[in-house]
Each structure stands twice: as structure tokens, then as C-alpha cells.
Write a protein that binds this DNA or RNA. Sequence first.
DNA 1: GGGATCAAGTCTTGTATAGGATATAAGATA
DNA 2: TATCTTATATCCTATACAAGACTTGATCCC
Lengths: 259, 259
Amino acid sequence: MNDPVVTPPPAAAPSTVSAPAAKPALGYQPLYRQVKDELIRRIAEGVWGPGAALPSEPQLAQELGVSAGTVRKALDEMAVEHLVVRRQGKGTYVGRHDEARILFQYFRLIPDQGERQFPDSLMLEQSAARATPEEAAVLGVPVGAAILRMRRKRSLGGEPVIVEDITVPLDLFPGLDTMEIPNNLYGLYADGFGVTIGQAVERLKATAADAEVAAVLGVSPGTPLLGIDRLAKSLDGRVAEWRVSLCLTLRHHYLSEMR
Amino acid sequence: MNDPVVTPPPAAAPSTVSAPAAKPALGYQPLYRQVKDELIRRIAEGVWGPGAALPSEPQLAQELGVSAGTVRKALDEMAVEHLVVRRQGKGTYVGRHDEARILFQYFRLIPDQGERQFPDSLMLEQSAARATPEEAAVLGVPVGAAILRMRRKRSLGGEPVIVEDITVPLDLFPGLDTMEIPNNLYGLYADGFGVTIGQAVERLKATAADAEVAAVLGVSPGTPLLGIDRLAKSLDGRVAEWRVSLCLTLRHHYLSEMR
DNA sequence: GGGATCAAGTCTTGTATAGGATATAAGATA
DNA sequence: TATCTTATATCCTATACAAGACTTGATCCC
């Protein structure tokens, strides 16, 4: 009946044993981490889709053959990483890439005065192509692999503030090049293709606007812009998107909190 | 003997009771959070100085009149916030603002190629003064309060990359204006004045170098610079420092990770 | 119908206990 | 002396149990 999906407790009776494994060998991982990896694997595989409710903690514990406390510790870590959302009295849910979450997790450009808000998008260019050596290196695909390039203008409160170039590997998103592209891309990645963005790294530089970007943003060439080079990875660690944003920071700023 | 420092368990025997408090009132805080606050308070007050070893978990538990698991949960959160450092087999220590910690926690300007490193500093100007209305508003002190202004040039690998203006309220750091200022300011705040920086917020903008800054950095005026406006707060919530940095991002970038 | 009350299900918090893992120092042995 | 073993102190992992807090839905009463 009991079917430990993770590394089964050492031997015989799974009910009374407590040790995680006989050997504290090199690749040793605590039980709760094995549970966490297993749960992440299931989410990445789509066993539970975005927004779906996970089984209750006692259910998961029994199914995985571990104690409730161990499941709890795994879920706690996942909640910190926004992979799941827990609501007391209701249940634990797979995290969704809705606008609210994007806004507070991935979008850091805030008006100097006023509320932070989700930006509008206007597609400027869009073309399926073959990966250049640079694109291939960044995305982790072979040179010549099918990719999609997009350029969007994004506005906050009606004011254009960002020009962003997005490059994605098409093998992760088959058919994306023939689809209507929504404002919230990460939501589409997750709901439409089962690719959940789990981590992103941004590198920021100050640059000067070239003629083309300046025209789009309605400023003069040479205006200082905040350049953001973002690499977004999916839950299984693949690079899912390369995004270069040029931001006008006259009346907005990039927020970075450190505790 | 037993002396619950936090909200004591409801009544009589602290050994068998389990409930945190009779009322789930409005200002209800879980026990482990009360424990955490108490521990932070002690650190902020200097009961345990920077780098000092805290009592062991069982000792703290007994002293505070709670279970070891509750102390553990409080310390876990504090470890995440870098307030304490835990070492298995050794003990739990108050976090120190040494260069290694600053480097990975507060200093995000990284060379495009090569290792991240701690910057050198050269003091350009330094003057005790009275707070202007703007400074007073930012620092949360009365207009005219004693402050110290500093301007430093900072270099990475011998290359000047940052000009930073630092403003601090002198009531928090009495005598700082007559001291030798070290490279690592946060270490001095903590070790010399018992003021631990616990949180910082940065607002980033792209700007153009003015003549003076350009001269210091060895670039031409108008060169795009990354402007960082940082407010650093001490453990008790006071604004302890206002720092405006102008960074040359030709061969460096600001790193921002989001998980 | 509308509102209050209750019960069930779930996450959340707190306690207790046991053993594993790690670091250090003292002692035993070759 | 040098090395190994043991003991001790500490944090780390895992389990079990109990009760609080929140949400939801059903029931009851007016």
C-alpha cells in the first residue's frame, strides 16, 4: 500500500524507521529535500497544472511514505521560492504567473510617484529565425536552431518607458511564432506550454539611446537609458527566454531591496 | 527558575501547556515570532556583539520558556536574513558585517568578466554639517541636525568605477566626523557604534555624468552612469545612512537575481 | 429568503523525543 | 611522538501528537 516515491527509508518497516539513509555518502540529500525535488518534478511535468490545488499535507505524507512534518518543510521552502502558494484553511496551490505575481516578483520598474503597475505592451517586430552563434550560446541551443525574436514597446500609465527585445527557443514553445502574443508572456509560457519560469538573473547597465530606440520612446538620441539583460530559466533549469530591456528612467526607477 | 521573557504561556505550568495565548486578538503574533523579535532586540541592544556566539538552542529555549523547536524556527528565519550565522556542530553566531558578507549581500556591482571583488575607497571630501530639509526628510532627523557628508571614489581592480555621496546622522555615530573612515563602513557602524544595518533599499536610474564626476572617473561628461540611491536602515528601523552612488558600467554591471 | 451557527477540512503553530552529522578536545594506543 | 578512538557539545533531520486559525459549506432558525 505504502509506496515511497522518494528514496525509501533504509529497509523494512517504513513506519518506525527514522534514519534518512544508511550512508551519509557524498551525494547525500536530506529527506525533505528529496521530497521537495520530487514535488518540483511533478509540477514541472504538469502533474499539477498552474493554480491547481496540491493534495493535503497528510495525503502527500502518506503517499510519499514520509511524515507530515517532512512534507511541511519541503513545502515551506517551495513557498519561499514562490513555487507554491499556501492559504491557511484552504490548501496549497501551484504558483501562477498572473500579473500580480509578475508585478511584485519580476517587474521592478516603479514610478517615482504613484502606484506600481503592470505595463502595457505593443509588438513592434516579430520574426521566426535561426539562432546566431551569440543567441545559441545564450539560450543553450545549437547554432541555427529555430528561435523567435520579438521587439515590444511597453508603457506605464500611457507613457512609453521600455523597448525590449525578446528571444526564445522555439523548441520549447512550438507554434508560438504563429500565435497572438499576450501582454503577460510568462503566463502564456506556463498555461500554454507547461514551461514554468522559476528563476531569472538580470544584469543592469547604463547606456545611451540610439536613434531607433530614442524615436520609439520619444526622447532624443543619447538620452541615458537603463539597460536590463535578463536570462529566465524554467523549473528544469533550461534557459527559456533572453530579454534585453532599455528603460527610460526619468520618472521611473528600478527597485532593489536587500535584507 | 523558569523566566519566560516573551509572552508567557497562558498560565500555570509552562511544561505541559501548549497554547500560545488565550486571545487570538488583533495584534496576535505566533510564539516563534515573539522569540525572534526578542532575540533581534537583544542583538540590536548589544547583549551579544557582532560575531559573538549565542547560547545553544536548548539553553535559549529554557531561558525563554519555550520549546527548542520554537527557538529553532526563530533562528531559522534570522539565518535567512543574515542576522545570525549557524554552524553545525559549533553554534549560532551574530552575523558580522565583514567584507565577504557586504560583498555578496550589499554590493552588487560585478565585473563583466572575472571575479566579483570588494572595492577600494578614496575619500574625496568629508564635512560635518547641518541637515538640509531634504537630508532631514530622507534621514528622518530634524532640519539642522548634525550630519556628516562624505564623497568617496571607489575602484575595482585599480579602475575607478564609482563616485558615492554618503550622508549619515551624527547622533547615531558620535565622533565619526573626527575618525579615520575605513573602507568597509558597515563594519565600523556595527563594531564601533553598535548600529547594525539590517535592511537596505536601492532605487536605480540611468543618468549622465556631470563634469565633476566625469573628471573623477576619467570619462567624458555626458557618459551614461548607473545611479543608485540607497537608504540603509538599522535593526531598530532607523535610517542610518543615505548613499547615492554613480557607477560606470562599461566593464561592470549591477546583478539582480530573482527566484 | 436571509442571517447566524455549526461542523468538517486544511493549513499553522507549538511541544516532545530520538537519532544523525559535524566540530573539538581529551584520552588511548602503537 | 604520532595517530586513532572516544566523549562531548552543538546544530540538523525526522517523527508524532495536539491544539489554534481560517475557509467553506451545510444546517437551522427567524
